[in-house]
Simulated scan of single mutants.
Amino acid sequence: MPEPPLGESRLTDLDDRVKVAGIRLDALTEAQVVDEVMTAIERGRGGHVVTPNVDICRAVSRNPSLRALVDGADLAVADGMPLVWTARLLGSPLPARVTGADLIWSLSGAAAARGLPIYLVGGRPGVADAARDALVARHPALVVAGVDAPPYGFDTCPEAVARVRARLVAARPSLVFVGLGFPRQDRLITTLRDDLPGAWFVGCGSAIAFAAGSVRRAPAWMGDHGLEWLFRLVSEPKRLARRYLVDDLPFALRLLATSLLRHRAEDPRRRDAMRAAR
């Protein structure tokens, strides 16, 4: 990622983040993320939001370069209740789950209120256009500076990336939602940030498809109880069965079990320390 201007640091200090599953997360609510991003834009400073979930944590645990990608973001928030539960067990609670699918709406609303243009990158042909229409329908003052649905694999072709860059730079948005999936979206963001140093980029996964209505999102109660993965599995079993059942679910269960055992082991130590302090 580009270095901050001289005399400034990244938006958050890595040491202030909560470490969960080998990555560091900011203890922020959705409203606080929106406030941080809007304040930074008003000050002329851009940034990068990453929203790790269990699948991202699993990938990061096996690849140091992916961990560096998450650590390099200006804001990293937990998109997954297992991460919130784990942080709670470890004694460093996160205030809430913050998803890209929610941020696309709340950040767009804040941008509309301030007259800040946004830009959408990702989705199949027509999906980003439908997402644009849905966002404007909810926030009529919203300015969508452009939408782009580059073909799958474009990010491996320098000429195709250059075309995406040229369109983005010409539009000059303040807020860019990139929905290509991790790590593709976040790698692309790191290559584009120098061209728009005052813009904020959000790696938002399926948020553009959710906003468009082309992919159904789980009811809020399922997300709040850590069951959104089950809803998506039932909706897209062929595409998601291996990811959720073979890869992510065992990883999440091991993560929670390890954290629970650590929590139970540390409880007696806390009690002994409290008695000794009396």
Rank of each mutant, 00 (worst) to 15 (best):
A73I: 06
T51Y: 06
A59G: 13
A160H: 06
P173G: 14
A111C: 11
A257M: 09
W229L: 06
A252S: 14
A87I: 07
P82T: 08
D102V: 00
A96M: 12
S174C: 09
V127W: 08
A252H: 00
L233Y: 00
P268D: 10
R24A: 15
G122E: 10
R254D: 10
I189D: 06
V60K: 05
A276K: 12
H225M: 12
D129T: 10
E36C: 12
R167C: 08
A160S: 12
V18I: 15
D267L: 15
S214I: 07
H225N: 13
L142Q: 01
A87L: 10
F251A: 11
P95W: 02
I56V: 14
E36S: 11
S92W: 03
V54N: 06
H263A: 15
R17Y: 03
R262A: 11
G181A: 01
R262G: 15
G203I: 10
L28P: 02
E8Q: 14
L196A: 01
A241L: 06
P2W: 04
A160C: 01
F182Y: 13
V50P: 07
R165M: 02
V121C: 08
G100Q: 02
G46T: 07
R132G: 04
F154E: 09
R10S: 15
L89S: 10
R254F: 07
P197C: 05
D13A: 14
D102G: 07
W229D: 02
M222L: 15
R269K: 14
P237L: 03
S92V: 09
G47T: 04
G22A: 00
P158V: 01
E42Q: 12
A96H: 03
G80K: 07
A211L: 05
G22Q: 02
G80F: 00
P117N: 05
L260Y: 07
H263C: 15
I208Y: 05
R184C: 01
W105R: 05
V136H: 01
A130W: 04
R17E: 05
L66E: 05
P237I: 04
V161W: 03
V143E: 12
L168F: 13
H225F: 08
R254Q: 05
A87C: 11
V176Y: 05
G91V: 02
W229N: 02
V20N: 09
G109Q: 04
R216L: 13
L188E: 12
G179C: 09
R62K: 13
D195G: 05
G226Y: 10
P93N: 08
A141Q: 12
W221V: 15
D55C: 02
V144H: 03
A252W: 07
A27S: 11
V70T: 10
V127I: 10
C57V: 01
D267S: 12
S106G: 04
V161M: 10
K238G: 13
W221G: 07
R254N: 09
G44S: 05
P4A: 12
Y244W: 08
G181I: 03
V70K: 08
T39Y: 05
P237Y: 00
A212M: 06
